[in-house]
Write a protein that binds this DNA or RNA. Structure first.
Lengths: 197, 197
DNA sequence: CCGGGACGTGAACCGTCGTTAACATCCCGC
DNA sequence: GCGGGATGTTAACGACGGTTCACGTCCCGG
């Protein structure tokens, strides 16, 4: 299909418009919150007027939806892949999961912020889909944490997982103040200590 | 001053209106985000029409401002007080800080959520004041963490503090699934492990 | 008992913002 | 080189939401 061709061309090859828009929007949404950012602001950020956006997205909500869906999919896919590649040792799996999440959080503090702040301003359908993906990602962690703490029930493992997410996803609050490598090491060490405690 | 008298009377004695409104607003803001909540919604939540709110608050922003200021002040005051009461041992200080923050996070998940999601939708002046209070609270933690890790610089301690906040403040994401005492124990243990790692 | 302040109400005002419409422009393939 | 699709622009529409207004009611102190 020419559809797919075009899509591949525009989406991947050149980082063109649509992608620029998504990136700029992510930045703005993270800074001010999606509801506080106007279509005109997003347009201006890529050197275009507001309504021009509707050539690339059906609506503002659709923009936010695609953004959140991508993040959730990336996290889930990455998590599954890392765990699978880590062999059978739960501790090794935990370490690779932590490293993965830390990298993501350091590379995309803006996405982290938007991800859990603006989920609520999403149309019900999309919100549900994002939540499904999030839940599956959490379950990956729950599995690993469960094997690491055989006596703990799933509810405890889930709470532990959320706590570790909170720890690692603190990057938007403490960003840039520390060299990346140092920050990565610190977060990884803290996360592992917390997860195995 | 009659001012103070009245304030004390209305604010403390009876949990009347103004207070009801603040509580209801906190709940709604936490669920949907302050910008997605209309004045009418807040009014309806306390059995009153929208405009009635302007008998108690100068504006919607003023409501949010008072909410965030109170939280920040409560945290700072509580933190300072606990540390002072804990003697000289940095580990004892850390433990009491953690217990304090865990209690707060478990008692007020809604406030936690609003606190760092809606700070951005605050008039510049109020936002700055809230940030000042936050900073001072963080500094309390930084002091303790610094004494606990003598070789670490302040930037590291600050990052550590934010990470621990993220860990403990994960309560809105994993609320209610675990009995409170169990959740408190889990979070405290994880936080201590992370902070001392 | 009566005058005023606290508290509410419904209606109207007005700015903001997402979205659409009508109209250009540019460029690529036939 | 010509027609059409992709991409933008400006202007306008319509809804929503914060805020104000004019008007009631209730109650309490002199």
């Amino acid at each position: 299909m020419t559809d797919v061709d075009t899509a591949l061309h525009t989406d991947a090859a050149r980082p063109s418009r649509r992608e620029q828009i998504l990136r700029a929007a992510a930045q703005l949404f993270a800074e001010r919150g999606s509801r506080a950012v106007g279509v005109d602001d997003v347009g201006a950020a890529v050197g275009v007027t507001g309504p021009a956006i509707y050539r690339h997205f059906a609506s503002k909500d659709a923009m936010l939806a695609e953004m959140l869906l991508r993040i959730s999919e990336r996290l889930l896919a990455g998590g599954v892949e890392r765990v699978a590649a880590a062999g059978d040792d739960p501790l090794a799996q935990l370490r690779t999961l932590i490293a993965f999440q830390v990298d993501f959080a350091l590379d995309n503090p803006a996405l982290i912020t938007v991800h859990d702040r603006d989920l609520g301003s999403l149309p019900d359908g999309d919100a549900a889909q994002v939540r499904r993906l999030q839940r599956r990602y959490v379950e990956v962690w729950v599995g690993v944490l469960g094997r690491l703490h055989p006596s703990a029930d799933d509810a405890t493992s889930r709470a532990r997982a959320h706590a570790v997410f909170g720890l690692i996803n603190s990057t938007p609050h403490s960003a840039g103040r520390l060299p990346r490598a140092q920050m990565a090491g610190l977060l990884a060490a803290m996360a592992e200590a917390a997860a195995t405690s």
